Amino acid sequence: MRLTLRQLQIFLAIAQSGTTTAAAETVSLSQSATSAALNELESGLATSLFDRVGKRLVLNDNGRLLLPQASQILDAANTIEQQFLDQNATSGAGLRIGASTTIGIYLLPAIMAALNTMSNKSQTTSGAHHPNVTIANTGDIALAVSNFEVDIGLIEGPCHQADLTVEPWISDELIIVCTPHHPVLAGKPSDKVPLKALRSANWLLREAGSGTREAVEHALLPHLHHLQPAGEFGNSEAIKYAAAEGLGIACLSRRVVADLLSIGRLVEMKTSIPKLERRFYLIHHQHKMLSARLAYFLDFCRHWTA
């Protein structure tokens, strides 16, 4: 067989970077060696995989056909390699974990610490085989799982990728908050805020693609019909501090705002809207080879409680 894993690795690096020069840095080869490997791959397959557009290499239809197959093959090879690096299946060594923002900041550290305790270690495995964590919005994490860039995703919104296995996980409470001095409270934080006031209020929102944004809109729009944005932010931390400064009101996870609620910088608004909850999800690729370590981590998450 003339096809090699190294050739596929180089092919993926070029597909992602668009040039052999940039790909060479990723795979730790010279530019000439990277170009030679691509030429060998195209020669072995008797087809061109890229269109040459100036100095850039753009995937053609053959390249797009190979891309998901190459990703899956390399992911399977990586799984085989990782499962023998650390025989302790209860550790998270070598796992690539993707988490959406709220989970990555407020839940995942506790999960990993508990996992660490279960594996009888005082700290995560050192060296190249420690867990690698990527934190981004739900859409980006789902895409990373779909492309085999991470092994598992922990997300806080619905997932629309057809090639993923999506498992409902734990529930999360959303609450509406603002500064105690916000005019919408009319000086009476204990009173219910009318829906009319919420409809005319300025809202601080997450960016498009965020699980929190999708969950908030799904929960509030049936009651408010429209959210008047005062700003869009890339993470919930920025939103809660913007709300504390009086820039608008926000609907966020209770976990996110617990600290500012406890010291009085934010207050929970009382409304006639029913209790707001959303579901977190565990996702992995349908064709993902589950190593003993990854299977253990999945099961650990299923039974974990805050």
Results as ranks from 00 to 15, higher is better:
P131G: 02
L220G: 07
L205R: 12
G63H: 03
I73K: 04
G187C: 07
A197T: 15
N132E: 11
I111H: 06
T212I: 06
C178Q: 08
F11E: 08
V58L: 09
L67H: 13
P68F: 00
L65G: 11
G231S: 00
D75Y: 10
V166K: 14
I155V: 15
I170D: 07
Q286T: 12
R56N: 09
F233P: 08
S119F: 01
L38Q: 10
A128M: 14
S210N: 11
E81C: 04
N147I: 00
A238T: 14
S200F: 00
T134N: 08
K240A: 00
M1K: 07
L198F: 07
V256G: 00
I103G: 04
P189S: 07
P131M: 02
L67A: 06
M289E: 06
I103A: 04
N88E: 11
P194S: 03
A306M: 05
A128Y: 13
P229D: 02
S119N: 06
S100K: 00
I152K: 02
G54N: 03
R279S: 14
A186V: 06
G211C: 08
V53H: 03
L12C: 09
I14K: 04
A13C: 01
N147G: 06
Q286S: 15
P158W: 00
L57C: 00
D259K: 15
I111S: 04
G94D: 10
E237Q: 11
L143K: 15
H226E: 11
H285K: 04
L260T: 01
D172T: 08
F297I: 08
A89P: 13
A244W: 03
L298N: 12
A13L: 02
P189V: 09
L227V: 11
L74D: 04
A15P: 10
T47W: 01
G54K: 05
Q16M: 01
T90S: 14
G127E: 10
I263D: 15
L107D: 13
E207L: 03
S35I: 02
R2M: 08
A306G: 14
L266T: 07
A215Y: 04
D151Y: 08
D191F: 02
Q286C: 14
D61A: 15
S32V: 13
A46Y: 10
K270S: 12
A99N: 08
D299V: 04
L12N: 07
A77W: 04
G94R: 09
G54P: 05
L221R: 12
A306W: 07
L66Q: 11
S126F: 05
K121W: 05
D163V: 03
E42F: 12
G187Q: 05
A37E: 11
S43A: 15
L205H: 03
N147C: 11
L294N: 09
L29Q: 02
L66K: 13
Q286I: 10
N116L: 12
M1V: 08
H226I: 01
L49V: 06
I273G: 05
S171D: 15
S17Q: 15
L38P: 02
